[in-house]
Nucleic acid binder design. Structure first.
Length: 440
RNA sequence: GUGGCUAUAGUGUAGCGGUAACACUAGAGGUUGUGGUCCUCUCAUCUCGGGUUCAAAUCCCGAUAGCCACCCCA
């Protein structure tokens, strides 16, 4: 006879369904913070050395800001925004990107009366309702910087240089700068017409997607990956040939500045950014690797946006900026194994036995901390054994043990964890004795 | 939003129709107040819900989530 196990269900099936986070968001746990610190601290430091000041703008803004700023026809605004109505009847949106908010703050805080140009950097979460996959989340983080109130092309070059410098400092030396110019409003719309005409004539050779896209956004057809479309795209008119004199000269001089910085770049005539506010210079930073893969996961992007501030109701203010995706950069750093995880260093471990000792240990912990001794503890644990085990995990050089006897005598045991030698010292001398030993 | 793949302890995996295994991690313990090695024990009914079957982690359907592609972007 098969013996039946007695079934005593601990859980009633289905009753205890653990709550999950919503789709596309994640927790950033203690053991990955060092990467975040590394990336953000590096970026902040370099930005500040370039004269940028930190700005924090709200995580949500009026929806109108993004509709007008990013552009009502863009994918971001059309289908990716977290918008909601408040109880008070406002329509707000969780920011999908940082530039529009900064531009709004520029206007609202009268920054046009500050010494020009105004240089700002920021970092924080952004939200886009997309279908998540690797390198793509619904809540993700940007680090970005903006420079407002300067039209000279040297600024474009400097921004690219700053971006490049940050990536370099992060160790991403093989990331490439992809650059293009999409002209100003005038030459771009002229180019769009030209492109539309060109594609209309070849519409039978296009894939269904591109036929559909043609009316909406002809620029997008340029980077379709269908074989047929690529053939058509290869012979399409290029925006660079259609720039007005001003835009043409501007771009030419940006490239000259980059040359003089000896910063290598890839001139990419198909680079088109998905936000409407860009004018003239646009650029992205792609990770090292095959071009096909790199373009899928651009690490960051930016460019000039001379019309944005005016579009939002401010005085005409030329500007440029850049931002990168913190998660993507961290992934790339992990992939290339660039940063070692720092070890937690603790100098002594505090052990306590018994009620009185436990009480004293709390105070001693503070005394040690105030004396700048790095101390670890496991005050909740009872047995000396388990506490020593913990001490071992922390790799401390010494353990300080207060037992019941020591608590009464007002003494403490200093144990050398390597040799196992122990010494009893008076409580008031602990700090001195520990420091003496640590100095050896 | 569309299509494909996947879903087993905290982590990584095994099991491929007869009722869960291994490694690591974590917690407790191996007699009196002493760690690192070693040993013992504990922690999942197999994402959730439904169906087929005498029997399901294993097959089917649905939901959810992850991954990949398209799209787009960071």
């Amino acid at each position: 006879m098969p013996r039946r196990k007695k079934i005593v269900p601990k859980k009633v099936k289905g009753l205890k369904k653990p709550l999950q986070s919503p789709k596309g968001v994640r927790d950033i746990l203690p053991n990955e913070q060092y990467l975040w610190d590394f990336v953000l601290n590096t970026a902040r430091k370099i930005s500040e050395s370039f004269g940028y000041g930190k700005i924090e703008t709200p995580i949500f803004e009026n929806t109108t800001l993004f509709e007008r700023g990013v552009g009502a026809d863009t994918d971001i605004v059309e289908k990716e925004m977290y918008s909601f109505n408040t109880l008070g009847g406002d329509n707000l949106t969780l920011r999908p990107e940082g530039t529009a908010g900064v531009a709004r703050a520029f206007i609202q805080n009268g920054m046009s009366r500050w010494p020009q140009p105004v240089k700002l950097y920021y970092d924080g979460p952004m939200f886009r309702h997309e279908s998540p996959q690797s390198g793509r989340l619904r809540e993700f983080h940007h680090f970005g910087f903006e420079i407002l109130g300067e039209q000279s092309s040297i600024i474009d070059a400097q921004i690219i240089y700053l971006a490049w410098k940050i990536f370099n400092k992060l160790g991403l030396k093989n990331a490439t700068v992809q650059i293009n110019s999409i002209g100003c409003l005038t030459c771009r719309s002229a180019y769009k017409d030209l492109l539309t005409d060109y594609y209309r004539a070849k519409i039978s050779k296009l894939c269904p997607d591109c036929r559909r896209r043609l009316a909406r956004n002809p620029l997008r057809l340029l980077d379709c990956k269908e074989e047929k479309c690529m053939q058509v795209a290869a012979l399409a008119p290029q925006i660079l040939d259609c720039l007005c004199d001003d835009c043409h000269n501007h771009f030419k001089s940006v490239l000259e500045y980059l040359d003089s910085l000896e910063l290598s770049y890839v001139l990419n005539p198909n680079l088109v950014r998905g936000l409407d506010y860009y004018t003239k210079t646009v650029f992205e930073i792609w990770p090292a690797g095959e071009e096909e893969e790199s373009r899928q996961s651009s690490l960051g992007g930016g460019g000039r946006y001379d019309d944005l501030v005016e579009l939002l109701g401010g005085e005409p203010t030329p500007a440029a900026g850049f931002s990168f995706g913190v998660e993507r950069v961290i992934e790339e750093i992990k992939r290339l194994d660039l940063v070692k995880k720092p070890k937690i260093v603790r100098q002594v471990f505090l052990i306590q036995l018994g009620d009185l000792a436990r009480k004293k240990s709390l105070k001693l912990f503070n005394t040690l901390m105030d004396s700048r001794i790095l101390v670890a503890e496991s005050l909740g644990r009872g047995s000396i054994k388990s506490q020593l085990k913990m001490a071992n995990k922390f790799h401390t050089r010494f353990s300080l043990i207060i037992g019941q006897k020591e608590a009464l005598d007002d003494t403490i045991i200093i144990r050398d964890m390597d040799s196992g030698m122990q010494e009893v010292v008076a409580m008031e001398k602990v700090v001195k004795e520990v420091k003496k030993r640590l100095a050896k």
